[in-house]
Computed example of a mutant assay.
Amino acid sequence: MATQKLQIKTAIQILKPAQQVFEAIVDPAKMSNYFISESSGPMEAGKTVTWKFPEFAETFPVRVSNVEPDKSLSFFWDGTDGTELQVEIALAPTGNQATVVTITEKEMDNNEAGLTWLMGNTAGWANFLACLKAYLEHGINLRKGAFDFMKPGV
């Protein structure tokens, strides 16, 4: 019997139009208000950008594969074990200028390493969505100081 692959899928509704949600995801100046501390540039198809998070010393290359303005984007990045993982972000407009944001990340083997990835990155993407919602709807940066306890030497 083949080992089933694991993937993450999480979603949230944000009370903003898809265009505003999309811009907050692809524009590093906006993204630094709720997710990363810095980026080497905007997310554009065919480009590799480098993300830096406030609680980690290392940087993370993000290989952007597809961008459909106000609808979706996808990128690849490497898991902690070097596995290339694909992230897909879909935006679905709903009534009253709201947008459902769905994030799918795939895939890892159904083993101990895969389960560790599943737990950690599921929590990470749920946090991303909550932070995106708080930023867009209320101008709040939920991430500021939230993960300082993870910094080396703390």
Rank of each mutant, 00 (worst) to 15 (best):
W51N: 01
T80R: 08
V62Y: 01
E88R: 10
P93T: 03
E55L: 00
V21H: 08
E112R: 14
N111V: 11
E137K: 11
S65T: 13
A57C: 01
P69Y: 09
V100Y: 06
W117F: 13
P42M: 04
Q4P: 15
M31E: 14
P17A: 12
T3G: 14
Q19N: 07
A146Y: 14
E38D: 13
N66I: 12
A92G: 03
W125C: 05
E84Y: 02
I12F: 01
F35K: 03
T48V: 02
E55I: 00
V101K: 13
G41W: 04
K144Q: 15
N33P: 08
E58A: 11
A29N: 10
V101G: 10
K106R: 07
K16Q: 09
Y34Q: 03
M1K: 09
P54L: 07
F53S: 11
Q86E: 13
I14C: 06
G120A: 08
L132Y: 03
N121G: 03
L85Q: 06
E105D: 02
K151W: 01
G153Y: 04
T104Q: 12
A90F: 07
G95M: 12
S32N: 09
A134E: 12
P61C: 06
T10P: 15
Y135H: 11
V26A: 04
L15V: 11
N96P: 00
A90C: 05
F60H: 06
E105I: 04
A18R: 04
G120L: 08
R143E: 14
L6W: 12
M119E: 12
D70Y: 03
Q4G: 13
I14E: 03
A126Y: 06
V26N: 02
T80F: 08
A57S: 09
H138G: 07
G41R: 02
V154L: 07
G79L: 01
Y34C: 05
W125T: 03
A134R: 14
A126L: 10
L132V: 03
T102F: 01
L6G: 12
K47Y: 01
E44W: 00
T59S: 13
V62H: 02
E58C: 00
L129P: 05
E137W: 06
L85S: 02
A134G: 14
A126R: 13
L129G: 05
I14H: 04
A29H: 10
W77V: 01
L15F: 07
L118Q: 11
N111C: 09
L132Q: 07
Y34W: 15
I12Q: 15
D27K: 14
G139V: 15
T94I: 14
K30Y: 06
T102P: 11
A98S: 06
L15D: 10
A24Q: 08
Q13T: 12
A126E: 15
G41F: 02
P61E: 09
E137N: 09
S39Y: 07
T104P: 10
E23T: 12
D81V: 07
Q20L: 09
D27G: 11
T48G: 05
K5R: 10
V49R: 02
L91P: 01
Q86Y: 14
L91Y: 05
I36D: 02
P28G: 09
E68C: 02
T102Y: 06
A113S: 07
A29L: 10
P17R: 11
K16W: 00
E44C: 04
K106L: 00
Q19R: 05
W77E: 00
N127P: 00
A24N: 08
N121C: 08
V67K: 03
G46S: 07
V26H: 03
M108N: 01
